[in-house]
Design a protein around this nucleic acid. Sequence first.
DNA 1: AATACGAACAACCGCAGTTTA
DNA 2: CTAAACTGCGGTTGTTCGTAT
Length: 303
Amino acid sequence: MGRSPCCSKEGMNRGAWTATEDKILTDYIKVHGEGKWSNIPREAGLNRCGKSCRLRWRNYLRPDIRRGNISSDEEDLIIRLHKLLGNRWSLIAGRLPGRTDNEIKNYWNTHLSKRGQEKERRPESNHSKVEKKPITSRMDENPISSCVIRTKAPRFKEVFITPDDQIQQHRIVAIPPSVDANLVQNVAAGLESSDVTFMSCNEENYSLDFLVNIKPREINISEILDSGFTNHSHDLDAPEMDKVMKGDDADTYTSKIAESQAFLLPEEMEQNWRGSDYNIQANLDSDFGSLVAFLESAEEWII
DNA sequence: AATACGAACAACCGCAGTTTA
DNA sequence: CTAAACTGCGGTTGTTCGTAT
């Protein structure tokens, strides 16, 4: 017996969402919260499949969606994360606050995949700017055309980069179980900032699942190493990895940590990003810088 | 100005894992 | 315990719009 469809498709609206539908869905979720998607169409009076409601909400109506062009920093991050994680768009999106898996997937398919091979031949990542098309006035020309909302964000010519002068914030470092505790203490002592907490992870939570479940602000080197190495590095097997983690190469590893606190994302990132637009941009700039710095180090190490 | 083509992206489809009755 | 329902994810398609000719 096969699965029944999530809803009867007959008589359901399909295609682009109208402003009215968006409002109904948004209002409903504001009151009742997310979940029970299959009930929403009936209870909210929407002539849409529940699955479609969920998609619409998650990809476009959620208040924490960050719209606008993918910046060069974000692009670089996507490329690197894709290198580590593959087509796991939801995971990649989890590292890019406000971006959806669908958006990143689309961006990859339309922009980056085509350039993939070309870029491989060009090992030097020069953080080149994304080709930006001129600002279009799609959304202004006829915003209520056919009562269908074009949710596509306006394109911007420039990416706004604020100075990376963010106040150092408390950071949490997850330490893999195989790393010697004394080593960790040495690293901690070597760091200028005392606002760093080293958190030991046991075998149970130090896993890919841990990576999957954590929030963006919790990303750290151990997670990437855990997922990236085990899944995507064909040159370094687990024993070698372990050796590096606690053996002769540990100095290299720890020095990388010590050199770059930027590996870690500020704890308040997620919270801040939900605030004003300025804060969003400022914190994201800082965080992207951090994550990019980390990924660069991680890639060097992998290679 | 008209048309063709390609880029961009919103939305849909189907599968798979998880939860629930 | 099992089947059905729910939810999430990645792949694909269809539509719209900008640009080149």
